[in-house]
Design a protein around this nucleic acid. Structure first.
Lengths: 151, 151
DNA sequence: CTAGGTGCAAAAGGTTTGCGGTTAA
DNA sequence: TTAACCGCAAACCTTTTGCACCTAG
């Protein structure tokens, strides 16, 4: 599995904009996040990464992920006090978090929902981010590679 | 400052239902959460608690809070990877989290909102909890004791 | 008398950081 | 050649746990 030219360009342009350089480690981690969009944790990324990059350290993975978030390449998603997960879907969207399987799914709500809900806020508040998380049980076992619902 | 008779009864009945006993520590911690509804962290509760209960330990505060959550007396609220905060508002509501001040405010959205938004979920999902968090900047400096907006 | 509660100190778990050596513009 | 990187190990911070002592029913 290799990073597409297009994705490599997205990566290096975003990194350069942030004053960082593309490296094999960064390309590989970016590929892992893009490839199987299952919202892996840092540790899961580390494990997958080591298969083809034995030398890599967990600290590098963490540093890398922090950099990606800063550069706007991925979103960091947190549920309760569980380990952070990483999501390459940059559109405004919600998440569903399954209590049984622990899996996380992107939920694409109609865009107007996010706007309407922001309007409900008293104007003593100025919001840029609305986070909507569902928690429950996913009935169907979905193909891990097609977790983007409503597409 | 003392716990009202009414609140003491709510506390002891909820604790008894869970198989626990009311104790001075538990009453005091419950009072602290009810009194200044500013979503304190465990550590903030610990500091406030020690003023009148020098001997109390942080572990007791944590044990107590976990018990309260289990008994449905308070909600545990998490933002990003920050320390958990505790909220005595048991109604379904959203939260606003200020990037500048770090303060947390309850936002009472119309009830139909929570229901409508649950209906948007594909029926391969079964949700019981929807969590809505706003993140931004609070323009007005509000009285800390009246942080319940829309009431 | 004994189940349940407390406080202490240590451990756990996720994440961050300092540092010495390495690599690429 | 020098700024950016990497990996390692240690530190950090929040939270949990094991244990010995204590207390209320």
């Amino acid at each position: 599995m290799k990073l597409l030219i297009r994705d490599r360009e997205i990566l290096s342009s975003a990194l350069n904009k942030g004053g960082y350089r593309p490296t094999p480690q960064r390309e590989h981690i970016y590929l892992i996040i893009l490839n199987k969009r299952d919202h892996p944790t840092a540790d899961e990324i580390y494990v997958r990464c080591k298969k083809e990059m034995q030398g890599i350290s967990l600290a590098t993975v963490y540093n890398c992920l922090e950099m990606f978030v800063e550069c706007g390449l991925v979103k960091q998603v947190n549920f309760e006090r569980e380990p952070s997960r990483y999501c390459p879907n940059l559109m405004e969207h919600a998440h569903f978090h399954c209590k049984n399987t622990g899996k996380v799914f992107d939920i694409d709500l109609p865009n107007e929902y996010f706007n309407e809900i922001k309007k409900l806020l008293p104007n003593s508040f100025n919001t840029d981010i609305v986070e909507i998380n569902f928690r429950g049980i996913c009935k169907t076992e979905m193909d891990e590679t097609s977790q983007l619902v409503n597409e």
